[in-house]
């Protein structure tokens, strides 16, 4: 089966600074792929190259079978990007934001598509309020909803949960799982190991411009010495406590 994303020998530098030295990875169709790395490791640079926002210096990159350099408009037809900061228009209402994107994707029924997404993302009540009044989690949900319009085959999420509270994070995780369940390929960057562990089918770690390890969670775990059995009293984490208190558990 053809891979959704194929990257070979990708290089990128800003003037003298080599951000990406030699990046190789591939993402299978319908998978959730998590790219892990510290701040400044080059995760966003990779996302920008894959989404045709930035030109690569060297290497082969294909997205949905199209070369990003020679067929950028075919790539743009196949993808959508949710950037690091929720790119919603704050002056417009949630509904207007969605209708705008649906029009730009040239769908024949922008209103129906919008109503459907508002419902699905729990934004129906806030639909006619300006996005500037939304909470961080709502804004991110709207942002992701905007990315789903037109049913792109591949979705890029650049640090989708950075800056969200635990509740918002869990909401976003739920959405990502549903997406992958419906056959969409998800490319995700994150700094949180837990997030990759929760969501990803395959994980790659980017460090100093190269992918130092990649594989499934099970494969990555095998790289390290076998687990030792120790008895440690399990204290609830502050997150557990927080979620318990506000009584909105993960299975909401």
């Amino acid at each position: 089966m053809q891979n959704a994303i194929q990257v070979k020998g990708l290089q990128k530098s800003y003037r003298q600074l080599y951000v990406l030295k030699n990046v190789d990875f591939e993402v299978e169709k319908g998978n959730i792929f998590a790219l892990l790395g510290t701040n400044g490791a080059g995760k966003t640079t990779i996302v920008k190259i894959l989404t045709t926002l930035l030109k690569k210096d060297g290497g082969q990159v294909t997205v949905n079978g199209f070369d990003v350099a020679s067929k950028p408009s075919n790539v743009r037809q196949s993808i959508s990007l949710t950037g690091q900061f929720a790119a919603v228009d704050e002056v417009l209402t949630g509904r207007e934001n969605l209708v705008m994107i649906a029009r730009l994707r040239h769908l024949s029924h922008p209103r129906e598509v919008t109503d459907d997404l508002l419902q699905r993302f729990g934004l129906s009540d806030a639909a006619d309020r300006r996005a500037s009044t939304y909470s961080g989690g709502m804004r991110r949900r709207l942002d992701i909803a905007m990315s789903l319009i037109g049913k792109p085959q591949i979705i890029f999420l650049d640090e989708p949960t950075t800056g969200l509270d635990p509740e918002g994070r869990i909401e976003v995780w739920k959405i990502i799982k549903e997406l992958a369940g419906s056959g969409t390929t998800v490319f995700l960057t994150t700094q949180y190991l837990e997030e990759a562990e929760q969501l990803a089918d395959r994980i790659a770690i980017l460090h100093e411009g190269e992918i130092i390890v990649s594989g499934t969670l099970a494969e990555l775990k095998k790289l390290f010495p076998p687990a030792k059995v120790e008895y440690v009293e399990k204290q609830p984490t502050l997150e557990d406590i927080f979620l318990k208190i506000i009584n909105k558990k993960e299975d909401k």
Binding site: T51, T52, L53, S73, R76, Q77, I79, S80, L81, G83, Q84, F85, A86, A87, D89, E90, I101, L104, R105, M146, F156
Partner: peptide
């Protein structure tokens, strides 16, 4: 600054 251009530029327009 808010990434609106990035959103538009990654779309087929």
């Amino acid at each position: 600054q808010r990434g609106i251009f990035e959103r538009f530029h990654s779309m087929p327009i």
